[in-house]
């Protein structure tokens, strides 16, 4: 059971910082094609922002509900990544060869760019869910039972 932090400074800073961190995580995730960053780092930043809410406001607060809901999404990131590969197979090419994504009106290079974006989203979802899942596994027992029972 993670209790809420009782310092008003930590709580107000958390209220202000968590949305900023989430916006920054999304920026890192989608800016990975143009600068440093990418799916892995963006996923870790998104996951840790949700964990910060749990650590600051306790695990019963309404701000922590997002992390507990995300916990159920284990494997969705893998599904997105392998699903893009499967779509490439359906398009008539090799596994994960994004040039075979069947999207009309896009050149080959734009298709590969889109494939990079989709797989990065898959990696980010996978990493964020895994970070939250490991932290909840390491915490006390009743958190897990509560969050699994709804």
């Amino acid at each position: 059971m993670i209790q809420p932090h009782d310092s008003i400074i930590v709580q107000s800073l958390g209220r202000f910082l968590i949305p900023v961190i989430q916006i920054f995580g999304l920026y890192v995730l989608f800016f990975g094609q143009y600068g440093p960053g990418g799916g892995f780092v963006g996923g870790v930043i998104l996951g840790t922002s949700m964990l910060l809410a749990v650590l600051i406001f306790g695990h019963d607060a309404s701000r922590s509900q997002l992390a507990k809901k995300v916990l159920h999404g284990d494997g969705v990131g893998m599904l997105i990544y392998a699903g893009v590969g499967g779509l490439c197979l359906i398009g008539g090419g090799e596994f994960l060869n994004y040039a075979n994504l069947e999207i009309p009106g896009l050149e080959i290079s734009a298709r590969r760019s889109l494939g990079i974006v989709l797989t990065q989203i898959g990696v980010a979802v996978d990493v964020a869910v895994t970070a939250i899942s490991i932290v909840f596994s390491l915490s006390a027992q009743e958190i897990i039972e509560d969050s699994l029972n709804g």
């Binding site: 990975g32 440093p36 990418g38």
Partner: peptide, 11 residues
């Protein structure tokens, strides 16, 4: 030219 991704590490 291949991927329209300026960051070579990502591509």
């Amino acid at each position: 030219q291949d991927t329209r991704t300026p960051n070579v590490v990502t591509s």
